[in-house]
Write a protein that binds this DNA or RNA. Structure first.
Lengths: 188, 188
DNA sequence: GCCGGTGATGTCAGTTGCTGTCATCACAGT
DNA sequence: ACTGTGATGACAGCAACTGACATCACCGGC
């Protein structure tokens, strides 16, 4: 038997989500999270920069998927098409997960402004990375930034609608619909 | 002579901006800000909810201007046109201010992730208010949300470009250009 | 099979953001 | 002159976060 139980980070994430759901974000203390995970407060801060970050462990992987999708899009694809493919791919990724857990996490985040702040900066960082990848494909600014920001906006809106729907609705399809709506709204 | 110097709030705002510029955001303590303003830490927190909020005193007025502009747009205006008018009006407002101070404030905000978080949630709130006003004009979702989000994205990008330019460039014009670019990028 | 390095954790003390509570006292209205 | 009010100060306290140092199973080399 090893000295420590494995997956300390995962245990902290689970404990945090559970406690945030049960008692609310501000009411739960980092010490409580750590204790429930069988660790100490200091160890929590070795795994996560702050009390909010524990809910955003997956953002790096999401950004990687986004960036790879844009980079791998066919040369012939326009900027907005490349972005749309990436957003659809990200949507597909979310559909592979347990929707209840995704929903729980999202409920906590949207219920607490401090967590919404963190989510917004994650999405902004994602948009910046997307724009950067587009520039790498030779797309000039402001086109690159605009396409990236528009893509993230569509992603957010589609994700929200997906959460709101009860069954196993098709997220990539919602994404495509929202892109069409955006096209219509911006000028036709 | 009155018991207290007038404009405590304004003094706190000035002191905070100066200290954030001189020493950085994390390095300056609230006690220092209060002392420079001739007040106490406790009084700071009576005027501002937290250490970040002191830089965002103008956001309520900005949101008011946005919402009023959309509400007052002619009935014949499409959602995106109404939003574009509001963004242009906001741009005009910024041009009436001392660009150096605006630039200083923005430099501090963009240099510190915590402050960027706060800025992002202010803009998100603004977008939500905008969407709400559009719905009040009879625009259904997701069109209202998409138009609002697109408008805020354009605002952000135009504002950034305006900050980057040296002279007294025309912000409302940058806004119109960005809207045209968005239209082109999304495929129209 | 022992041995020193390593990495994840624990312990503890300290700073700072932020809050609750009560006291103070110029000012305005009566 | 009397009293209520509002902005402030004073003080105590909690929780987030950090730095410094100790511990000790495990791993690789010998």
């Amino acid at each position: 038997m090893s000295r420590w139980e494995p997956n300390a980070r995962g245990r902290l994430e689970q404990a945090a989500l559970a406690l945030y759901l049960e008692n609310g974000f501000e009411q739960t203390t980092v010490a409580e999270i750590a204790t429930r995970a069988g660790l100490t407060e200091r160890t929590f801060f070795r795994h996560f920069a702050d009390k909010r970050e524990v809910l955003f462990g997956g953002s790096a992987a999401l950004q990687g998927l986004f960036v790879r999708s844009v980079a791998d899009a066919p040369e012939s694809a326009s900027p907005i098409e490349a972005v749309a493919m990436a957003v659809a791919a990200a949507g597909a990724m979310f559909m592979e997960r347990d929707k209840d857990i995704v929903r729980q996490r999202q409920a906590v985040v949207t219920a607490h402004p401090e967590l919404r702040e963190r989510e917004l900066i994650k999405l902004a960082t994602l948009a910046a990375a997307l724009a950067d990848t587009l520039r790498g494909r030779g797309v000039p600014d402001p086109d690159a930034t605009l396409a990236a920001e528009a893509g993230i906006a569509v992603f957010r809106i589609s994700f929200e609608r997906w959460m709101a729907e009860p069954g196993q609705s098709d997220l990539p399809r919602l994404v495509r619909d929202s892109f069409d709506k955006l096209k219509a709204v911006t000028g036709n």
